[in-house]
Amino acid sequence: MSLIELKEVSKIYSMGKGSIEVRALKGVDLAVDEGEFVSIMGQSGSGKSTLLNIVGCLDKPTSGEYWLDGCLVGSLGSDELAEVRNKIMGFVFQSFNLLPKLTAVGNVELPLVYAGVHPRIRREEAIRALDMVGLADRASHRPNELSGGQQQRVAIARALVSNPRVVLADEPTGNLDTKSSYEIMDILADMNKRGITVVIVTHDPDIAAYTPRVLTFRDGECIEDVRALEGV
């Protein structure tokens, strides 16, 4: 069984009282194995971000089943979902989403705070994660003292710090210049080599070219699932 398995997953948003329904996802079937590096392509409104939110347990499907490592996510309560996001998932967002009042290391150790890790140990772990993204020397800087690329690397360190099995990145390079974008993609590819399943959402074919598997979405449906040949 795959690590991530979606069966007939639909998501319908009802906008306001006028019962105007937006069908963001229309019965998507998807399986991602442990250790895969997948990108999801598509134009805005194609449902790719909605899919990522559902996979990340931030959102629930209107219908269909989501199995994560053999566990039916729909049956979990909000505390268990928080636990899944804390331990199994790591998130990287387009707009970084760092807390402006905390230093880089403070932001990185935040998942460990919610995991109840002892302050000394989590500080060590956070420094180690920052070191993996090459920012150990910027540990005590606040986000507004860092460049966009550096902020995104802090966010990746935050996603890595709790040793997740899956890292989900929603347009991780959307706010970055080309050079920073490639740096970020190198880090994500490196993480994948260490065995972490990485799923990124992007509309940039150059970014998608980094990943051996590319899913293309249009109007809430997966219209293409291309796997590059091994070693190409």
Binding site: G56, K87, N97, L98, L99
Partner: peptide, 16 residues
């Protein structure tokens, strides 16, 4: 609101 969203995304429980 955004801070709460971030905290929840990285694993903060409701009671926290």
């Amino acid at each position: 609101t955004r801070e709460i969203g971030i905290r929840k995304a990285i694993g903060a429980k409701e009671h926290e």
